[in-house]
Amino acid sequence: MTLPLTDTATPRPATGPRRHCLFGVTILLVEDSRGVSEAVRLFAAESGARLRRADSLASASRHLAIYRPNAVIIDLGLPDGDGLALIRHLAAAATPLRSIIAMSGHDPASWQPAARAAGAVACLEKPIPSLRAFQDTVLSVLPDAADRRIAETAELSLDGRASMRAAFDADLRRAQALLTEAIETADRDMIIYCAQFIGSVGDMIPDPSLTAAARATNGPGPRAHELVARLSDRIARATSAALG
């Protein structure tokens, strides 16, 4: 596999979450978990990035043979092998890919040193703590030229801001559907991921009551049902405002 050379990235300082701060960025996510993949998809959508998913090493190889993503997020536990092997392969290729992010839900001390030694530039812990953490981590591995290009396109016009609000509402509807399904199946991980995403959106809208309800939700139970109710109220208000 031959991959184009990219520059070594310098980590950026933390900033607040911004919609479209990853505009034009393509991310390949190598992850077999549906819940994690859905959370990353939502974070990528809020950030303006294009996300493609591979659920195995074999699928990742097929993706990388066709196109070069701006960043690759690789889970270390994959069904057909070790994510560290893929990181080593990409980092040691004739034209190495340097914008690699390793991801795992285990104790950071047990995997982050090995991931960085293999060639990962940054690490993400599961569950991803916030939209801001996701954005800052991806930005930290991008070459400076790409980072400047993103900053130049991040400002939105008045029409863009209206479109952004509509997109927020659409994403909350999607999150509501996912959260409702997760509650019905008692999928604790998916409930937590949805709550984290909803809390990040609440921070940006802003909607303090929605953010508070999301941050109080840590699994199945009354808090999750309360969050669904808050979402329903938010979506109903947005629909009413749109209808005039």
Rank of each mutant, 00 (worst) to 15 (best):
A229H: 14
L139R: 07
I198G: 00
S56E: 09
E184Y: 06
I150L: 13
G244M: 14
D32Q: 13
I73Y: 05
L139G: 01
F134R: 01
S110Y: 04
L28P: 00
I87A: 02
T211C: 11
T15H: 10
M190H: 08
S157C: 05
G119C: 08
G48F: 00
I128R: 01
R215D: 09
R68K: 14
P220D: 06
I235G: 03
A117E: 14
S104A: 15
L156A: 11
I191M: 07
A154N: 14
I191Q: 00
A45P: 03
I87G: 01
E46S: 05
S37H: 11
C123S: 15
H89Y: 13
L210V: 04
L227K: 03
D80G: 12
G160Y: 02
A162G: 06
R215M: 08
R161D: 08
F168E: 04
A117N: 09
Q112T: 10
D159H: 12
R234C: 09
V201W: 00
L64I: 09
G199W: 00
S209E: 15
D189T: 09
G48E: 01
T180Q: 13
A49I: 04
R18Q: 15
R237D: 14
L76A: 07
A175T: 04
D171M: 09
H20S: 09
Y67A: 12
P206L: 12
Y67M: 08
T2F: 15
A54E: 00
R148K: 15
A236R: 11
F134W: 03
L42I: 09
T211M: 04
L156T: 09
T217Y: 07
T10D: 11
D203R: 11
H106Y: 14
P208L: 08
L179S: 02
G202C: 08
P69C: 12
D144G: 07
